[in-house]
């Protein structure tokens, strides 16, 4: 296989200059780029924090005359704590899925080895937990709208929905990616040589998770 560019898409082990897979180098560069994307969103949220001229507000009560009627702080910390936990656990499921693919060839004897070594189970769990997180987000968004906060209401609404919405869109893309991998796994079984395609999905997934770690603190907890 003389063409390294082409070859790498078939075998993870064809020599490249660094010995690393092209796709893994590219996904890390992509993640670096995403840092700036979320930095812009987060900065805007923080810059506009406390500058809305009308309620509802994230952490403060809004009373007349600023608002028509008294509005409670809108962020629901208990619910978001649970969804944060769900997303963290999805990262655990994701690493277990990758480990299962990396060790797909090793014989499994005990039941626990079989469970831990099932890439299908853990890919499914990751996608399920990701979907659960999205469900929480959908619940949060609709309840905000019922309480009178939309993307048009005030600066908080605009920056909050855009920031968390962008994150949600990333989770959605990740879920689709995971479902695709699951479909491939079910159809032909993922082998250790396929580890890299799970690895790049995993890196993306964990990155989306760490972005949420930052958002949870900066948006929800700090006030």
């Amino acid at each position: 296989m003389a063409n390294p560019a082409a070859a790498i898409e078939h075998h993870g082990h064809t020599p490249t200059t660094t010995g690393l897979d092209h796709r893994k180098v590219a996904i890390w560069a992509f993640i670096g780029s995403e840092c700036m994307l979320f930095a812009s969103l987060i900065s805007t949220y923080l810059i506009y924090k406390g500058r809305s001229v009308t309620g509802p507000f994230p952490h403060e009560v809004c009373s007349p005359p600023v608002c028509d009627h008294v509005m409670k702080p809108i962020l629901n910390i208990p619910v978001t704590s649970v969804s944060t936990f769900v997303l963290l656990m999805s990262s655990l499921a994701m690493v277990l899925a990758l480990a299962a693919v990396e060790n797909a060839d090793k014989p499994k004897h005990s039941l626990s080895e079989k469970i831990l070594g099932s890439s299908k189970l853990w890919l499914f769990m990751t996608a399920l937990l990701g979907t659960t997180f999205l469900g929480f987000q959908a619940f949060e968004f609709t309840s905000f709208v019922h309480e009178g906060l939309t993307i048009r209401t005030n600066l908080f609404g605009s920056s909050f929905f855009t920031l968390t919405g962008f994150h949600g869109a990333h989770v959605t893309a990740g879920v689709l990616w995971l479902v695709t991998l699951l479909a491939i796994d079910i159809r032909r079984g993922l082998k250790p040589k396929d580890a890299v395609i799970v690895d790049i999905a995993a890196l993306y997934w964990h990155f989306v998770d760490v972005v949420w770690i930052a958002i949870f603190t900066l948006v929800y907890l700090i006030h």
Binding site: Y48, R152, N154, L155, G157, S158, T162
Partner: peptide, 29 residues
């Protein structure tokens, strides 16, 4: 490029969906 992407997304949302990122009356900077 991600930074201009986000600045443009804000402008796009302001123009198409009525957000207030650049709406001075709403307290925008």
């Amino acid at each position: 490029f991600p930074v201009i992407t986000i600045a443009l997304v804000f402008l796009q949302f302001d123009r198409f969906f009525g957000t207030q990122f650049y709406e001075l009356a709403a307290g925008a900077d």
